[in-house]
Design a protein around this nucleic acid. Structure first.
Length: 660
DNA sequence: GTTTCGGTTCTTTTT
DNA sequence: GAACCGAAAC
């Protein structure tokens, strides 16, 4: 039994009010850096301390990282009393519900979760099947974005398509046809994409009254983080679960709503008091994080979004220096400047893990990565290619996925395409010959594949067969890392050496994947996690030496909720940040501004805003930019300008220089 | 008929 | 780099 928490001492009055409140609906408007996470954790701790069974608490977060952090910190407060609490992202919780009840929608509980790459491949095939492949037909990634919006906002796809392609030679009916086929194919494959997880969980609770009753009776206390970024489906899921008892605490900040492109609607937070008439509203406005000079910039920035509900961050910290704006010639000079500035910070005794570089888009940091490597400054990137989305990781996972779900066409195709002289056409033909069903453990199934394969690939197929031929059933449930080991040693090691020039690195990744399996009790659980977690390094606890001394590079989206002593924001140029697409689109531009607000409020002590003038493409062309409107619209007195664009720096002459 | 190879073009943000 | 397209090779 842990000792009593002293709420008086550890929380301020603003935080204490929602933490110690009785039940009922509560809306906590928590501005950046005001202890939002702290409030949620202490609320959980308070409930547990009052004797509430942790199993009746549901804590919904936006990212895996936030969920892990909260559960860890709650554990520190009340010890193992939090075990049994359901905490995680909406997708995790939806998945957990669906594993029990997917049958009600015609799935089996072993359904596969498709990641973005899977969805795009399937979509590409649907377009081909319907004979719609054409230069002017929208790309899979565009369609996928639209499908996600219809799913998460429950609005008709046809209208969305008409609006989106008003002046394009695209027939909205074709888009609907692709969508229908896509939905059908997923079901045949016993697979769900990310949106299906939410929509199907919602569907089950809507149609199966008894299931809804069970869950809503179980979860007597529901807490939701980052509520401003929920979409319609998510808010309805919450409303269904919490509807009866209304013991619902949502925490958020409309200023930090940065996911509307994914269907998030900050009207959810604005209309919360209307949906729950006896809502108590709490406000957290005392910022403990940033020096006043940083908050002045943040406050001034968000003033430019007239539609927002105005509130002002109050600082508790001593005055310090103003944020600097650095004018730079181009991206390379920016990289050089950031690198040398970091070096001088290190000389002053700053540690790397207190510094972060944040940016709008992944490619904004490319030149910097190059320069940091040259300067031997260690860094970790919380963005870009995700660990589990890399080709070699996905290749290895195909056999596990097929063992788990025999209808997983995408994995079957991917597996066969690893063989020489086998491409998509051949693989699909064999899939049809198997009647869209392949159980790797059945020798007759494996034999059918062998007979249909072209001669040059049969030898390699034999190597893959070895993995399954004398597999003990216990291996599949207890030690599926063994399957990965067998697959690599008999087949994939050689394949990797022939296929990738960085095979050594890739094989190390596979070993890491293998050791990761030990954390899981079942194959199905492991595969779910692989699909739902985005980045092994970023979302799991960093190892000690990483935490000790590495610089962090991250997109603003992924920096949400985090803080560093020193923050650099890259590419504050009109057309980069805000992006070209957002300029003169009032709503998107407002969202970009909120993004800038999120970026600035990550800084505790020092904020450095970088504004290069020229972007050099790899083909040698140059693009000129004005400074970001987010800088121009701020009162100039708030910033300290530094101009090094006209120093002795000479831009590179050869574009080839950039090729790595 | 299919796969593979080589050249070209483009990169928002994520579960 | 990776996704896409057209041409060469099997």
């Amino acid at each position: 039994m842990s000792k009593k928490i002293d709420f008086e001492k550890t929380l301020n009055a603003e935080q204490r009010a929602p933490v110690l409140a009785e039940g009922g609906p509560m809306l906590v408007i928590a501005a950046a850096g005001t202890g939002k996470t702290r409030t949620l954790i202490y609320r959980v701790a308070c409930l547990v301390e009052r004797g509430i069974d942790p199993r009746s608490i549901l804590l919904l977060t936006f990212t895996n990282k936030a969920a892990n952090e909260m559960l860890d910190r709650a554990r520190m407060l009340v010890g193992n009393m939090v075990s049994g609490l359901w905490g995680g992202t909406f997708h995790h919780v939806a998945n957990r519900i669906l594993r029990f009840h997917a049958g009600a929608l015609g799935y089996t509980s072993d359904y596969t979760i498709m990641d973005r790459d899977d969805s795009q491949r399937l979509l590409r095939d649907c377009i081909t099947v319907l004979d719609l492949r054409d230069k002017h037909f929208p790309k899979p990634r565009v369609l996928l974005g639209m499908f996600a919006l219809t799913a998460n906002r429950q609005c008709p796809l046809e209208e969305l398509a008409e609006e989106r392609f008003e002046n394009h030679p695209v027939n909205p009916e074709d888009i609907v046809a692709v969508h229908n086929l896509y939905q059908k194919r997923k079901k045949e494959m016993n697979s769900m994409d990310f949106d299906d997880l939410l929509v199907n969980a919602w569907q089950i609770l809507k149609q199966e009254k008894q299931i809804l009753k069970n869950y809503s009776e179980r979860f007597q206390h529901i807490l939701v983080d980052e509520y401003q970024d929920t979409n319609l489906i998510q808010s309805e899921l919450i409303d269904m679960l919490a509807g009866h008892h209304g013991n619902l605490m949502v925490v958020g900040d409309d200023f930090q709503s940065i996911y509307s492109w994914r269907g998030a609607d900050f009207k959810n937070i604005m209309s919360f008091p209307d949906r729950y008439p006896n809502t108590r509203i709490f406000k957290l406005e005392t910022n403990y994080r940033s020096v006043p000079e940083v908050l002045d910039v943040a406050n001034a920035c968000i003033q430019c979004n007239p539609e927002q509900f105005q509130k002002t961050l109050k600082s508790t910290r001593e005055h310090s220096k103003k944020p600097t704006v650095v004018s730079l010639a181009d991206g390379r000079q920016q990289a050089l400047f950031v690198t040398s500035h970091i070096k001088s910070l290190m000389e002053k005794g700053e540690i790397l893990s207190d510094i972060a570089i944040i940016y709008r888009s992944h490619y904004h940091a490319l030149e910097l990565q190059f320069e940091l490597t040259r300067a031997q400054i260690p860094y970790i990137i919380t963005s870009g290619m995700r660990f589990f989305e890399q080709a070699h990781i996905k290749d290895v996972c195909t056999i596990l996925r097929l063992l788990n779900n025999h209808n997983d066409e995408l994995s079957f195709i991917r597996l066969l395409c690893l063989l020489p002289r086998v491409g998509e056409k051949t693989a699909r033909k064999i899939w049809r010959a198997l009647h869209a069903h392949f159980n790797p453990l059945l020798s007759e199934h494996r034999e059918t594949v062998k007979l249909k394969l072209p001669a040059p690939s049969r030898e390699d197929w034999g190597k893959i067969e070895e993995v399954f031929s004398d597999l003990k059933p216990s291996t599949m449930t207890e030690d599926f890392g063994e399957i990965i080991y067998r697959f690599t040693s008999s087949f994939y090691d050689d394949y990797a050496v022939e296929t990738f020039d960085n095979h050594k690195h890739r094989l190390e990744d596979i070993e890491e994947l293998n050791s990761y399996t030990t954390k899981f009790d079942s194959l199905s659980e492991f595969l779910s996690e692989v699909a739902l977690i985005s980045n092994l390094d970023a979302e799991n606890e960093p190892t000690e030496e990483q935490e000790q001394d590495t610089l962090r590079l991250t997109t603003i989206h992924q920096a949400k909720g985090l803080e560093w002593k020193v923050v650099f924001i890259l590419w504050l140029a009109d057309g980069m940040f805000p992006t070209k697409r957002a300029i003169d689109e009032p709503e998107t531009e407002a969202e970009e501004r909120r993004l800038f607000y999120v970026a600035t409020t990550r800084a505790k002590d020092e904020l450095v805003l970088c504004s290069p003038k020229v972007h050099r493409s790899r083909d040698g062309s140059s693009q000129f930019f004005s400074p970001s409107r987010f800088l121009e619209e701020l009162p100039h007195s708030l910033l300290k300008p530094v101009n090094i664009a006209h120093s002795t720096y000479r831009p590179p002459t050869s574009p080839r220089y950039w090729r790595r």
